[in-house]
Design a protein around this nucleic acid. Structure first.
Lengths: 161, 161
DNA sequence: AATGCATAGTAAGCTACGCTTACAATAAGC
DNA sequence: GCTTATTGTAAGCGTAGCTTACTATGCATT
């Protein structure tokens, strides 16, 4: 219970940064006129890196509930950016693919992301960024463990990749 | 436009961590039965560190719009945890104070925060955490600059505190 | 093969968070 | 005094995510 009334405590700063990052991303996406919400954009890019996966896998990778993903997919599908194909190996499951017309959009989103992050990380060296990324992945792994069993954090397992 | 189709890119990881952190915090706050939403809890703790400030200042510190803060304050006030006193120096403004009965609650929230962060940061040394915090503060400063003028990031200004 | 349990996806509905727009009251500059 | 700026608020919106309950299918066990 180390006394720490610091408004710049790690948790605060982390949440601040995330909120602002999201809102900055949102503004960029809106300005770019892509017709997607940030969540949809994020989902689409994620899918592009996991082409042909099942919804559950994608949801797990994104750290959201399957139902939440399903809603995004409905939108993306109705816009024609993704397809749900039946999994030949399991008729319950569906495999998610991006459509050809999504290509340019995905590239745009990535550009927005990268440009934003370049602005935001300006003044920090590449090695430090790499280090920070690794630490954050560790946090993420700890948080995943927390979500699963509600208690014990990861101790030795590496953050993966 | 450095080619980076990595789903573990810094921005992604950052947003992931933030979402999971918020949801973990929410679960903790809910479990603790404090009767507050995470946003309210965060606001209350923030106010405690800025005792007697005006709403605009608090909102700015928290990086949210004054209206958003106003809503939280309504809730916190109706629960008796804060007071809005007229600013003797400016009759438009109100000064925000925590009430005595909020003391225990604030302590509880802090405890939850600290315990959570201890879990989440387990496996990372104190110096590294400190470093990460500083880097994140830099990101936050860059993001603040972005919000103000919509473009140029901070170059030399230190993250303050 | 029938029965029972597990799993993939979805429908419905909810909460939290934050924003924008418009406005009242007050302050401050000319 | 008149105009403009600023503080806080009312009203109403959209996004993101969750939970619960359900259908359809797969899998295992007898």
């Amino acid at each position: 219970m180390s006394s720490r009334p610091d408004p710049d405590a790690l948790g605060f700063v982390l949440i601040d940064v995330a909120r602002m990052l999201r809102s900055a991303f949102e503004r960029r996406i809106a300005t770019a006129g892509l017709g997607l919400t940030p969540g949809e954009a994020r989902t689409l890019v994620r899918i592009a890196t996991l082409e042909g996966s099942r919804q559950l896998d994608i949801a797990q990778r994104m750290g959201i509930e399957p139902m939440t993903l399903s809603t995004y997919l409905d939108r993306l599908q109705s816009l024609g950016y993704i397809e749900r194909r039946p999994d030949p190996a399991d008729r319950r499951a569906k495999l998610i693919f991006t459509t050809p017309i999504a290509g340019a959009l995905i590239a745009s989103i990535r550009t927005e992301q990268i440009e934003l992050m370049e602005h935001v990380t300006s003044g920090i060296g590449p090695e430090e960024l790499e280090l920070m990324r690794d630490r954050l992945k560790r946090l993420r792994a700890n948080l995943c463990a927390l979500e699963e069993d509600g208690a014990a954090p990861v101790l030795a397992k590496e953050a993966g990749r």
